[in-house]
Design a protein around this nucleic acid. Sequence first.
DNA 1: TGGCATTAAGATAAAAACATCCTGTATGAT
DNA 2: ATCATACAGGATGTTTTTATCTTAATGCCA
Lengths: 156, 156
Amino acid sequence: MILSRTTQYAIQALIYMATQPRGVKILNRNIAESLGAPPTYLAKVLQNLCRGNLLYSYRGKQGGFCLQEDGEKITLMQIAVITEGHGFTKDCVLGLKVCNDAVPCPMHKQWHPIKQEIVKLLENQTLDTLSTAVMSGKYQLADLPTALMSGLKSHG
Amino acid sequence: MILSRTTQYAIQALIYMATQPRGVKILNRNIAESLGAPPTYLAKVLQNLCRGNLLYSYRGKQGGFCLQEDGEKITLMQIAVITEGHGFTKDCVLGLKVCNDAVPCPMHKQWHPIKQEIVKLLENQTLDTLSTAVMSGKYQLADLPTALMSGLKSHG
DNA sequence: TGGCATTAAGATAAAAACATCCTGTATGAT
DNA sequence: ATCATACAGGATGTTTTTATCTTAATGCCA
């Protein structure tokens, strides 16, 4: 598994939010329901994304979460860096603490280009592209296709 | 992290064994020391590799572990399948239980080719190639270069 | 102002991964 | 035979990740 469960929730949640009308506050409860994710855990993840400045949060009645301005430009890499920590793209595939061009593990040379492709992919995929794909109805965001589809339909 | 710590230990251990003269029994204790891995934990990993038919084990005095015949042809994929379980190459990058060409997540199309490259790499890398690289002295197998190097030197 | 809905945050719990411990069993050497 | 050595396997402990619970803080609205 390349991304932790936490990061997967974060990405799913943000894509979901990008499918919703911009500027409207979205409840944690609704996101969790649409994704089939544990609400209390997702709340922590969203909190973390707020600290990472990808989201705004508003308390009280009429509160909820909102994508930051230019939210659709957010990349998967930005998300992953917040949830997995910096340097998760730098880890040695064999787990060595020090592994670089100068002092490589025996897989370093072969693994490096693939790692680069993963990085490039994560950097190229934006919430814009992904949410558009989901809204087309051809791609599922969670293991609850009916729940999600109905959720999308009710909003647009 | 693409491979679990357990898989990393397994790969490191097998590469190390492939650097040693074939047919000679190798002690868990020595492998662990050379890799800087916890000996009792490594023992479990090696046990598992025996069940997976990559190693032979011998008990009692003069006992130890031996690479299976044709051990140098073992691929990283064979190892990973044993330690991570089948289907670890089939996991959806967003964590969906069902995600395939027919019912894809919004990342499926973009992720698939990279996943294929990872699979191909793991299938192409053999203990032969990797142990040869390590024996050349240009590549480190553990975060204990001096310990490993001296270990290799003492055996040829 | 009081009541309610919502996120924030800290404590706690559960599960999985990682690691250790102890006893059993096989095997070669004395 | 007995002993020392090394793997096997089960129980236990620790750490990290994932998940839940509870209380506080905030803000809307009547």
